[in-house]
């Protein structure tokens, strides 16, 4: 009897979907706050991301969780989308395409997890 190997596609698709949703809902406001508003002191106080404040945020259970989930989902969402777009530009599925996409996402996930752990609780 032929045995069927369960596809891993739903896992990657689910991460793509969840990450796309999180990027759609939180991405714009996060980029605006961390990359524009705080650096130029627009609408938010210039010390909004000072060391004590960010440390407290990243040590807080909710803050740490939010940062990890955002990085993890953004990375895997984009990896999946880029993997399939590489096919559209002629780089077909293979070790290279996987390393450039899912490989990068895995490295980003590990670096973020380790450092968020080191920051402490």
């Amino acid at each position: 009897m032929k045995t069927y190997k369960r596809s891993n596609a739903p896992i990657f698709w689910l991460l793509f979907g969840a990450g796309g949703m999180m990027a759609a809902l939180f991405g714009p406001i996060m980029v605006f706050i961390t990359g524009i508003a705080v650096p130029i002191g627009l609408l938010l106080p210039a010390d909004a991301m000072s060391y004590p404040k960010m440390l407290a945020f990243a040590q807080n259970f909710i803050g740490k969780g939010f940062l990890f989930v955002a990085i993890f989902l953004f990375a895997w969402h984009s990896a999946h989308r880029i993997f399939h777009s590489l096919h559209d530009v002629g780089i077909h599925r293979g070790v290279l395409a996987k390393a450039l996409t899912y490989g990068v996402a895995a490295v980003v996930t590990v670096i973020a997890a380790v450092n968020l752990w080191v920051i402490g609780f």
């Binding site: 990450g19 990027a23 991405g27 996060m30 980029v31 961390t34 990359g35 940062l67 955002a70 990085i71 953004f74 990375a75 969402h77 984009s78 990896a79 880029i82 990068v104 996402a105 980003v108 670096i111 973020a112 450092n115």
Partner: peptide, 10 residues
């Protein structure tokens, strides 16, 4: 760009 922002956050 979403990937780039994930890297900035990391």
């Amino acid at each position: 760009f979403v990937a780039a922002y994930a890297i900035v956050l990391t």
